[in-house]
């Protein structure tokens, strides 16, 4: 994302377009990890940006706008899909982007890691995704998830420890 996707003085349309250009891919990826469905993720992102458009005048700076764009899909996913989850096609292995790195061995490692992240408890996965995809600080993640900063840092530690253990490298664990 650019340093200042929301610039005071630009008109609403320009501000909105800057937000979309800077963040739509990150918001989509976050939404995808939340609902694990391409179609639902797309719906979540469209709902997210529709709401952002409606409340754009209230988003006074880029920091607030970014946090907002990651808060809406989480809340909407919980509201719309967590209580009623339609039977989803298993798309593991189909969602990873094609790239020049897609040699079979490399891709298998990435797929294993992808699956390992998927298996993390959501308490650990969500702060990890917000940090890795959104680039949020511990304090910002604490605000989005309504946790205190120490809990967030502990969960980030545990998320990576669990991934490390899955790949055969032990790590000390710690209780919250």
């Amino acid at each position: 994302m650019s340093d200042s996707p929301v610039i005071d003085g630009k008109n609403k349309q320009q501000r909105y377009e800057s937000l979309v250009a800077a963040l739509y891919q990150d918001v989509y990826r976050y939404a995808y990890w939340l609902c694990k469905s391409q179609a639902l993720a797309e719906d979540l992102v469209q709902e997210t940006f529709l709401r952002a458009w409606r409340s754009l005048d209230s988003l006074q700076n880029d920091k607030a706008a970014k946090a907002r764009l990651f808060t809406i899909p989480r809340r909407e996913n919980a509201r719309l899909y967590e209580r009623y989850r339609p039977e989803l096609v298993d798309i593991e292995g189909q969602s990873i982007a094609a790239s020049g790195e897609n040699e079979p061995d490399f891709r298998m490692d990435r797929q294993l890691l992808h699956n390992a992240i998927n298996r993390l408890d959501s308490d650990y996965r969500e702060p990890l995704l917000l940090q890795v995809i959104g680039g949020f600080s511990g304090k910002e993640i604490a605000g989005i998830l309504d946790l205190n900063n120490n809990t967030v840092m502990t969960r980030l530690f545990r998320a990576r420890s669990k991934l490390k253990q899955e790949f055969g490298l032990d790590s000390d664990d710690i209780d919250e």
């Binding site: 990826r29 990890w33 391409q38 969602s95 990873i96 094609a98 990890l128 995809i133």
Partner: peptide, 8 residues
């Protein structure tokens, strides 16, 4: 791995 999700 996290950012390898393809975006429509």
């Amino acid at each position: 791995a996290v950012t390898a999700i393809s975006v429509p």
